[in-house]
Every structure is written in C-alpha cells, then in structure tokens.
Simulated scan of single mutants.
Amino acid sequence: MQKITTFLTFNDQAEEAATLYTSIFKDSKITRVARLPTGHAMTVEFELAGQKYIAMNGGPHFSFATGISLAVSCADQAEIDYLWEQLTTNGGEPGQCGWLKDPFGVSWQIIPVNMGNLLRSDDPASAQRKMAAMLQMHKIEIAVLEQA
C-alpha cells in the first residue's frame, strides 16, 4: 500500500489532466471519478506507472507553484523527447534544465535516470562543462551532456 498520495487541486480541469497523464504514461489508468450532481468531476483518482494520485476541482483560488514538481526518470532520449512533447503541447511551457509546466500548470522534471552520473566527472573542468551545458538546455539532451 502506498502511504503517501500526491493530491493535485485544479481549478476545473482535474479530469482532463488525469486523462492526459494516463494517456502518456505506461501502466497508468483512471481508477475512480466522483461526480457532483451536475455531472462534473469533483475528484479523480488515477495511477501513473503504478503510483496513485488524486486530482480535485477546487475552483479558481487554487493554482500550482514551481516549488513542487513531478520528476520522471526516463530510460533514454526517446522517452525524454516523447514526454517533453506530450506535456508541452497545447499550452505547456518549456523550462530550464529539464523542467516544464504542462497545460494545466503542473511542474514536471523530465530527466534521464542517470542524470547524476551524466553530470559527474573526476575532472573538475569536465564537470563544469557538463553543468554549463545542462544550464543552457530546456529539454535535456543526453548526447550533449555525454560529449561535454
């Protein structure tokens, strides 16, 4: 059993967000939608890659801040490219160093699973080059970091 569940409060797009997220991550699904008498979703329970989340429509006084994000460890560049495209299309915003905001304002970090190793080097000059390269990126480019 998952002890801690991420709870995301949207203005009025909880179901749309859960639908987008579950459409792009493998092993994901919407598990329950609690509806108001109007038929609109109040809460949406869903899983992304086996991790449980709850989304709620809370009204316009709720918004997301960049101080919290959902970090995705990607196996390779193809996965980074795919997720970046899916989450920035239709109103998403690219950020620096693998960060982005999706069309609903949720912050994500789309990074390679071996990001720490890509930035490390026993040679201080190499480590500086790698960090400098990463700081210039929006979407992470693994090959560029490997060559720096």
Rank of each mutant, 00 (worst) to 15 (best):
S23I: 12
Q13W: 01
V44W: 03
A41D: 03
E45A: 04
S63C: 04
G92N: 06
T38S: 15
Y53P: 09
G98F: 07
I54Y: 06
V106Y: 01
S73W: 09
A125R: 05
D122W: 01
D102G: 07
Y53Q: 05
L70C: 10
G39H: 04
P94Q: 03
G98Q: 06
G116V: 08
M115N: 07
E79Y: 11
T66E: 14
G59C: 10
V113L: 10
F10A: 14
I30R: 00
A127E: 08
P112S: 06
A71C: 14
A125C: 00
F25K: 15
A65M: 09
A75Y: 01
I24D: 11
D12L: 09
E47A: 12
D81R: 08
H40W: 03
H40Q: 13
M42T: 00
F64Q: 14
Y53M: 09
G67Y: 11
A14G: 03
H61C: 06
A127P: 00
D81G: 08
I4V: 09
T31H: 08
D27T: 14
A71V: 09
W108R: 04
K26E: 15
M56K: 09
K52I: 02
P124W: 01
V72Q: 10
G98H: 06
T9M: 15
L119A: 02
V106N: 06
G50V: 11
Q96M: 11
P103N: 13
V106F: 01
P60E: 15
T6H: 04
T89S: 15
H40F: 10
P60C: 09
D76S: 05
A17H: 11
M42E: 02
T6Y: 01
K101C: 02
E16H: 05
A127S: 05
P37S: 04
Q77K: 06
S126K: 14
V33D: 03
D102Y: 08
